Simulated scan of single mutants.
Amino acid sequence: MSNLGYTLMTEQSGPRELVGYAVDAERVGFDFAVSSDHYSPWLTEQGHAPYAWTLLGAVAQATERMGLMTYVTCPTLRYHPAVVAQKSATLQLLAEGRFTLGLGSGENLNEHVVGAGWPTIGVRQRMLAEAVEVIRALHTGDLVDYHGEHFEVDSARVWDVPDEGVELAIAVSGERSITELAPLADHLVAVAPEAEILETWNATPGAPQIGAGARAIGQIPVCWAPSAEDATAYAHEQFRWFAGGWQVNADLPTPYGFSGATQFVRPEDVAAQIPCGPDLDAIVEAVGAYWEAGFTDVALVQVGDRWQQQFLDEVAAPLLDKLRAAAP
């Protein structure tokens, strides 16, 4: 059966609210929680972007059972991989083994802020592969010198490392990224319920096998609200950035760019991609595409902050029951 997760979406809620949502998500029965790791919201209407690592440290102390994960951290531009190695080791200690480090090649929206430019996708993937090598080396607790094409590490050591290590989940999409990155990962992250992604991953030499210890972790937005009309209007306000797909989403640099790029996206266009309204069966059907594709884990994003508490208090528990009843 799929593990069901809750998304702490830093773009749409403040840090104190997110910690409270995490506590409630554990209370109602979610198996794990993932946090976005952004410097900026996608749209100005979302209005938030607290620091994911401070948030997750607080969540680790406020919860006891749920797995925790970044979904996902880019360890190549805004953060140096040596810093990611240190903070992920610390978080694993605070979470007592519940943390998985989700990694990806990033989005221009968040990474351009340090003035390092925005590389092409091929370069970003090679940078990510090098970053993983650095993180793995530092998680041994040994003294590390590293001289790569993109990163230098000079006499670095992470002094507080967890005995169980930190498992790495890496975001992939096409064949090129899977071939290069799957052998470096413990788990797969993907944002589309495509069986071909998992099949290509499992066919890649050296890749940990999905279904034999490795997880395939997906994510899906839903917009529960008391009425379909309210949900559709709110999803359009908060989540129309989603309509362009990740090939577009990775490259736009600012919320204003996303606003311009989505000015002709209609509410009905958003509702065609995101289940909107009080119909839990429609949400179950949408989530089902992930386990039908072979995913082991699916994290839900309840769109926006407006009905977030009501979703957790009144909707999440019966929704989880329905999802678990329908899952293989």
Rank of each mutant, 00 (worst) to 15 (best):
G102A: 05
V19P: 02
T200K: 07
A52M: 07
A131H: 04
E107W: 14
R27C: 06
L77Y: 12
D160Q: 12
F32W: 12
E149N: 02
A95R: 02
E111I: 05
Y6V: 11
T140S: 09
E26Y: 12
V303T: 14
F242S: 00
D269K: 01
P205D: 11
D313L: 02
R27N: 10
D279G: 01
P328L: 13
A316P: 03
N110A: 01
Q46C: 04
L198P: 00
D251E: 08
G102L: 12
H48I: 10
E268V: 13
V158F: 13
H236T: 09
A82C: 03
I220H: 03
Y256P: 00
G67H: 03
L252N: 01
L181Y: 09
Y234V: 03
T7L: 15
A137K: 11
A327P: 01
Y6F: 15
A271L: 07
A225C: 06
G165A: 07
D154V: 15
L184W: 13
L8Y: 04
V172D: 05
A171Q: 03
L320Y: 09
P81R: 08
W53K: 00
I210E: 08
S13V: 08
T76A: 12
A325Y: 07
T179V: 15
V270E: 08
T63K: 01
R16Q: 08
A185L: 07
A89V: 11
I220P: 02
G304T: 13
V222P: 01
R306D: 02
V303L: 08
G67K: 04
E130F: 06
S40A: 10
F242A: 01
L128V: 11
M1E: 07
A216V: 10
D251P: 00
A95I: 13
V166Q: 06
F311K: 02
E96I: 04
V172F: 07
G244L: 15
R306S: 01
G257L: 03
E130R: 00
Q310I: 13
A137V: 14
D154W: 12
E152M: 09
I178W: 11
P162V: 12
P253M: 05
T120Q: 05
Y21E: 14
V153R: 03
I170D: 03
A250P: 00
E164V: 15
D297R: 01
G218D: 08
V287M: 10
T296I: 13
S105C: 06
I283E: 09
S259K: 05
L128A: 05
A207F: 10
W201A: 02
A243N: 02
G29S: 02
H80C: 03
G5W: 14
W307F: 15
M127P: 02
V161C: 04
L4Y: 15
E149C: 00
P221K: 07
